[in-house]
Computed example of a mutant assay.
Amino acid sequence: MTKTLADLIEDALPQTQCTKCGYPACRPYAEAIAAGEAHINQCPPGGQQGIERLAAITGQRVIPLNPVNGFERPRSVAFIDESLCIGCTLCIQACPVDAILGAAKQMHTILPSQCTGCDLCVAPCPVDCIVMFPVTGDATGWNAWTAEQAEAARARHDFRSARLQREREENDARLAAKAVAKLRDVNAETSNTPAELAEKERKRAIIAAAIERARQKAAKP
């Protein structure tokens, strides 16, 4: 299969999914570059070498990293102080590559080999128990990261995205089924007085509106 320009650009990104580029993940940033809506110098994890790679792919000139998006630094790995962790799961929800293990009200821990250093888990932590430790010495950009690590991170991110989408769809289906059952119960209610009939119609309207919203949501690509 022939790769699109966005595919080639995405392949040149480090797949840290850090959002520092201003987009929710590496793929949307790649698509924005391909569409001429973003510049090639918005990825701090890729560093200057990453900009050179993107310039070669897009035919654009090499420019410095935009400081608005951050600075090129050694790659870091998150560390959780387990003595302070309260098990809130906010870091797990924030991690784009499922590199954090834990459960509600239980201690969490980072999987260092899977952490991309995105630091998205730091800000949500309500007890400040997460810190980022540099692990690559003076090496920055692609000198601190490999194509194999990038591909593994992309696979974990894509798997997580698919799982979350599946969970949303399953939840929507449960809610829709619940609404249909509720409508059936309302229709079965015996209503004799005008007030009872009006209340029954009110309930029908509310449930019908909820079902229609669910239908429209499910129809969206």
Rank of each mutant, 00 (worst) to 15 (best):
A104M: 14
E169T: 12
R168E: 01
P112G: 11
N66M: 11
S161T: 08
L65Q: 08
Q60N: 14
T2H: 13
A78D: 12
T19S: 15
A35F: 09
G137C: 03
N41K: 06
E10I: 03
A99E: 04
C43D: 12
P221E: 03
N187I: 00
L5A: 14
E82T: 15
T16D: 08
A219G: 07
T146E: 02
A25I: 05
A99Q: 05
L101D: 14
I206Y: 01
F159L: 07
I92G: 08
T140R: 09
Q114S: 13
A35E: 15
V186K: 01
K203V: 02
A205K: 04
T109A: 10
V77W: 04
G59K: 12
I110S: 05
N69A: 15
G117D: 08
C121G: 06
H108Q: 10
H157C: 01
W142E: 03
P221N: 06
A6W: 03
E201H: 01
Q49C: 09
T4K: 13
R27Q: 13
P64V: 12
Y29D: 10
L120C: 03
E170F: 02
D81F: 11
A38T: 12
I92C: 13
A94D: 11
Q42R: 15
L183D: 02
P45H: 07
A38R: 04
D98W: 03
P24V: 14
D128E: 15
